[in-house]
Nucleic acid binder design. Structure first.
Lengths: 341, 341
DNA sequence: ATCCTCTTTGCATTCGAAGTCATTTCCGAT
DNA sequence: ATCGGAAATGACTTCGAATGCAAAGAGGAT
């Protein structure tokens, strides 16, 4: 004895039943009409589309997600969006996923400790997959596997757990930088590392240190945290430690390189690159500014994001695909912040 | 004669029915157990929670969204994420919304023309609301009203259509900058405008121009597009137009101010601020770098994002709330890129 | 023991679209 | 007219959780 439900008066709240009624067909027909490849007579299709337009009908993605078990949502988890390098990556990823008909559920971490809460939400929304640029511990990574949610790590690897990932090759990049610096007749080397919990940070520093060692060069290492101020602070430390003799500086990212360049010029009156060569990593926008022109390794963001999206989509279609690591070589951007060989 | 559905073997795919069976209660009980305020006996609750934990059960937000007609999703639509100012805003908004139990569906526009496609998706996902930092035309704004989807504009207003919005006060900000410059004994004023389709860009430039006019100062205006390179290019134009006599430059944002400062110093050998004063707007990170220390108006991002989120949530609860505009005063950051009065 | 109230609990329905299956329609061939 | 096969269509069920309602249980007062 149910009373017939009234269609919501607000436009755009129409359901497939409303459209069906207006077009004089069944709900199934409406559904098929919006699914390409289904069998609908041309005349029926016209009627339905006309009705849909008149009612501003848009299929409810939530209901679709429930019945098809495909939310068409992908989680993007990023630790610190303020990193200057990530906005570009995020924009690229979002646009590429959109182009594939997939929506982005964004999670930005204020602190590492928030990861578990974020994952909680990721599970609830039944995302089809995730792209992660944040540190996950092995249990957290395992949770993705357990639940069958494909994941692709961006600029980090599973560290023990096999996980698909896309990275820029820190090692070859740092080797190129170190070799160029060594050929450039430098004597006292310094390194500004990233925060200890950054995978790429540690990898870059380790690569640079070892290559220097192989080439018979010693170096002092100071830790920064990837931001501008820490580049300045680290440079001050290094100047003290080397008795102002520092003449080659390798920074784990561009932002610290820029901080160090400014500090050298302004706080110490040291000419860069004449008296001090500075190199960075990433190839962020400000690295190419006239005042800096940082010699750096530019990450191939477009290719990397393209790969990340492609790998994720593959794994959504075929969850059994094995974890693959794709390593992209960065491009040495000569710049003018360093005298190279 | 339906065969009993087998629970998905993968952990974490359990449904409320699976939990109910494991705990020996009904599905309703499970549902109530996860809804606070519902009446469940302590012992029952324990049993259910234990079963849920054992099965790694997380309520399906998609199904919840369907039945409750509340997706707990908010769309954030941003035009150019690379704007240096937006990443900070985005991170703040995302974290604030998360704290309120709301997830962010991110849409990043590659081109203005994509807006309609994005809105299409916004309708499909039945978002509870939207925060928009992109240009919407009146029809697009009207579509939100028609559908009863609350919206808050960020740093732009409805321009004809009444819409809730949060803005940083361009006018008082530019007035403060202009007044300080005028007191600083400058003679030839130039302005670098933003792209014509930027609301704040036009507003800032217009405010500056009029205040200069009121104070009896003339000025040349050149258009940029908010990025570094256009600051450089615009400065070159202005130098030509003023026969190199330019000594006060007002830029519609910090990034162009920085581009202009670098250009003045490096391309023209002009000392900033001794021979040329430059002011910007926004208060982005690089504005405070040692090399620039741009005199600018810092937008109160925390307060603005807080207000945007609060206004949106209010409107989600009470869709009938009238459109409100909230204007926040920026803070004059003295810097050292300009000689002020 | 009886009655009454308040709390717990389960049943059944609902949200909106997709998809299975059975039925109807259509069109040309005979 | 009759049949065959394909195309088109609709009835019905399903996804997973929320909720109105009725029934059952728990306690208290008498």
């Amino acid at each position: 004895m149910a009373v017939k439900r009234q269609p919501d008066v607000r436009s755009g709240r129409a359901t497939s039943y409303d459209v069906a009624r207006a077009a004089g067909v069944s709900q199934s027909a409406v559904s098929r009409c919006f699914k390409q490849g289904a069998s609908v007579a041309p005349r029926t299709r016209e009627k339905i589309l006309a009705a849909a337009r008149a009612l501003s009908y848009y299929p409810n993605a939530i209901a679709q997600g429930l019945i098809t078990r495909r939310s068409n949502l992908v989680a993007i988890i990023i630790s610190n969006l303020t990193n200057l390098y990530y906005p570009e990556v995020l924009a690229e990823l979002t646009q590429r996923l959109s182009a594939q008909g997939i929506r982005v559920l964004l999670f930005s971490l204020a602190a590492e400790s928030d990861v578990d809460e974020v994952l909680d939400q990721v599970w609830r929304y039944r995302v089809d997959g995730a792209i992660v640029a944040a540190r996950l511990n092995p249990e957290q990574l395992a949770a993705f596997a357990d639940r069958g949610v494909p994941i692709v790590l961006y600029n980090r690897i599973g560290e023990g757990v096999p996980v698909a990932s896309v990275c820029c090759d820190s090692i070859s990049g740092e080797h190129a930088l170190v070799e160029a610096l060594v050929e450039g007749e430098h004597h006292v080397f310094g390194i500004i590392a990233g925060p200890a919990d950054s995978y790429v940070g540690e990898e870059r520093v380790e690569a640079a240190r070892r290559r220097l060692e192989q080439l018979g060069r010693d170096c002092k290492i100071v830790r920064g945290n990837f931001d501008y101020a820490s580049g300045d602070a680290a440079l001050k430390d290094l100047m003290r430690m080397t008795d102002r003799k520092l003449d080659a500086l390798i920074c784990a990212n561009d932002l610290m390189a820029i901080g160090a360049i400014d500090s050298a010029r302004i706080n110490f009156g040291i000419a860069v690159p004449q008296a001090l060569s500075v190199v960075g990593f990433d190839g962020v926008g400000p690295a190419t500014w006239l005042a800096y022109q940082v010699t750096t390794i530019r990450q191939p963001v477009r290719r990397m994001t393209e790969a990340a999206v492609a790998m994720l989509l593959e794994r959504i279609e075929r969850p059994d695909l094995s974890p693959e690591q794709r390593l992209f070589a960065g491009e040495l951007l000569p710049g003018s912040s360093a005298r190279l060989g």
